[in-house]
Every structure is written in C-alpha cells, then in structure tokens.
Nucleic acid binder design. Structure first.
Lengths: 224, 224
DNA sequence: TTTAAAATGTATCAAATGTTACAAACTGAA
DNA sequence: TTCAGTTTGTAACATTTGATACATTTTAAA
C-alpha cells in the first residue's frame, strides 16, 4: 500500500499534492516490498532496472572493496529514493550494497513505468534531473574528501565543514569507530591523530565533543 | 557558427539528423566561443548555468586540492558535453577546472534554453538522462579506484582494467609521472613498486610498455 | 551500587609511502 | 653524431599509518 502523503515529500515527487500523486500512480504499475532490519535490499553489482523509494524506515549504503571490507557510503531514510543515478546510463548496476537498518517499506517502480511518470509530469522530470544531478555532486564531494591524504587533513576538513563559519564545537554523531570507518582509517590511528592535535593546541576533546581552538591553523593544514 | 553534422554525434544529440538539429537550434538562443590552447574555459567553483559542448578540439578537466596541486580527472574532446551533471541540482558550480589542450570551439547553451530543448525533443531528454547518469557512474568508478589503498593495488587494478580479458601488454599513455599523478602518489614510489612487481614476476616493464605475466596473482592482490 | 560490556586513550612495532638526491637511459634537435 | 633536456631507475632516510595489545573510562543494566 502506498502512502502518497509520505511519498510527495520525496525529492522526486516534491511539489505534487498527495491527491495528484495518487492519480499518477494509478496510471502505472509498481510494487511495495517490505524488509526487516539487516535484510539486504540490493547487492552491489546487481542490475538496476527499477526505481526504489524508501516509504518507511531507513537503510545504509556500503561499498565492498576487493578485500571484502565494507566502507559505509551513506545513510538514507524515508522518503528518499535509491539508485536514481543508475536507472539510466551505461552501467545499470547498483554501485553499492543496500541493507535495512530498521524495518523498511520500499516502493519499487520498473524503469519503463518511471519513464511514463516523467512524461506525465514535467514537475517530476525537473525533480528527477535535480535529484540525479545532486547525486553526482555528492559523489564529487566524496572524491574531494578522499583526496585528502593525511588523517590530520581529513579531520580538519571534517570539522571545518561541520562547524561552518560560526560554530566552535562539533559533536561526533555516533562512535569514534564509525568516524574512523568513514575516513577509511583505523580507530587507533584516528585517536592518535586527535591526541596529537590536542597537544598542538588545535582542538580540545571531551569524548565525542570536539572544540576547535585555532581555525586559522586548521585551514593552513588543508592548504599546505 | 554551429556545425550540426558534428554536434549530432554528441551523446546529447545522438540519433537526431543534422537537419532536425539545425531546426531545433533555430528555436533557442546560444553562443559559439573560441579558445586557444591552454586557455581557461571554466574555473572550479564558478557558477554553472549553461551547457557547454565541445565543437572542435579537446580539453582537460582538473581538480585543485587545498595544497594547490592539480589532479587530472579526465580528457575530453569534440563533440563531448561538459558539466552536464552540474546544470541541475543543489550545487551549480563547476567541480573542476577546464582548460583547452588544443585550440577549441565551444557551443554554450544557457540553462533555460536547454530546458526548452528537453521539452522540444524526447530523444534529447533520453540522451541527457543517459549522459548525466553515465557521469555519476564515472564518478562512482573513480571513487572505487581511490578506495584501493596500496600503490600495488592501484597498479593491478589499472593494468587489469586496461588490459581487459585478452591483452597482455599495456602501454602507458603519457609519462610515468602523469600516471603517478593520476594515482595520487609520487613518481619514485610508483617506480619502486613497479620494480618490486617485476622482481616478483608479476609483470615485465620496458619503459612505457608493461606486460602482465601473472593475471592470477594480480587478481589475488585486489582480493586480499 | 555493582558489574559487565562497550568505547576510548595509549603504546610498540612493522609496513607503506613520501622526500630528496642522483645516476642511467632515452629523446630530439643542432 | 653530439649534446642538452627529459624521463626513468634506484637508494637512503623520514614520516605516516596499520596492526595489535592493553589500560582506562564510560555506559547501561542488574
């Protein structure tokens, strides 16, 4: 059962009323699938021939490298769409493995049916172009992040980005372990580098709260 | 002056006859700009509010990190489009700096005019969706490439990709220096690792020609 | 409060890579 | 050919990070 009041808040259907959306969905074929926590929703490499939209719950996207280790790419929750950038194009395969982090309801729309939607609504077309572009831009950002060589630089970039222009204190969302995973480094290495930065007077740490003491020098780190 | 015989071979206009394309261009506003070799065409961070298509010549896209070093992202030539993934979406800025590697002619179409084209031709719409998606997929591939930690793995991945299933010998396009830059490592480190791999019987090198001796073990490298 | 589990701080050693320097091989023009 | 400039091979040392182990602190439940 679809919930158009939820779906109309998805980036793809934004600006469309629940009523209009229900009419549009009445003109196409689709499925609603349910998953339990930790269930696999899509496996990296699998053919992507349908649009998936999270109607309920949240999922995580991970990349698996050749050594079998997983690198978390992002967390997504309702009403976000999945794999929008892989419906079209040359490589119609999921680039990531997606699994449920809670119980999940997904709306699954086959590609030909979705193309119908694009033709039916110029609003959806515009939304989709924005979504797909934002995705490419997100990847571009990730690339930039990975271009920082040293842990020190990654920390500086992360903190400055998170703090913005005004904040001085940044709270690490989950564990230090997960932050290390996101950086692609080991936890002890991250802890060590944080410790060094404290000693140098760049930051102050109190468990998961990090206070930036010297934004000037933090920026210097990134520039040389 | 536009050359529709060239432009219709662009991914965005593929499948459209030069005559039809000329009619379509007659319905919108656009510019044709010329650049000389080494001229800057777009600067990373600049607003992207127009679609650029190379009509003549070739360009390179580079990313500039905080330390001022440039990392070459890709080479493009006529009749390829630029910045297709940054016309829409939240961040309407060029992610890369683009400069001419030969004398260049660019067709520049303002975003609103390009939207008109999408509405005028469903073929262009489909082509554009494919182009933009392929772009995201390219970035995703780059991400995967950067996820290889050791130089050894980067070399193995590069060679196996380049060799495909049948070739045994791979020619490095330009200099070893540039290959190192592409890997994000220093040239001596790359040369050293290549030397080690020769000693281990994985490859044979003769300046810019690399022969893969043991694909089996090369694959093993990537998996563990 | 007590206690076990989880998260964090720290240390030691090994491995990988950067830095710098220089020698050898190649390339193309005079 | 000869020679200068470029590219490539190699070496010694410094730096960074990973791997592993363990102590300490925090957290949450009994």
């Amino acid at each position: 059962m679809i919930h158009t009041e939820i779906l109309c808040q998805s980036p793809i259907f934004r600006g469309i009323s629940p009523e209009d959306l229900r009419v549009l969905f009445g003109q196409i074929h689709y499925q609603v699938k349910t998953y339990q926590k930790n269930d696999l929703i899509a496996i990296g490499g699998e053919i992507c021939d349908r649009l998936l939209i999270i109607q309920q719950g949240s999922v995580k996207a991970e990349m698996i490298d050749y050594s079998g280790k997983t690198i978390k790419i992002e967390d997504l929750s309702a009403p976000w769409p999945l794999a929008t950038a892989f419906l079209f194009g040359k490589e119609n395969h999921f680039p990531v493995t997606v699994s449920a982090t809670t119980d999940v309801e997904m709306v699954s729309i086959p590609k030909p049916e979705f193309v119908k939607l694009l033709q039916l609504s110029s609003l959806i077309l515009n939304n989709y172009l924005n979504t797909i572009s934002t995705r490419a831009q997100f990847l571009s950002q990730k690339l930039k992040f990975l271009s920082f060589k040293t842990i020190r630089q990654k920390i500086a970039h992360y903190l400055l980005e998170k703090a913005g222009d005004w904040l001085q204190t940044v709270e690490i969302p989950q564990s230090q372990e997960q932050l290390a995973e996101m950086f692609g480094v080991t936890r002890p290495s991250l802890a060590r580098t944080l410790g060094e930065m404290v000693q140098e007077g760049l930051i102050e740490t109190q468990r998961r709260s990090i206070k930036i003491l010297d934004k000037e020098r933090m920026n210097q780190l990134l520039k040389g």
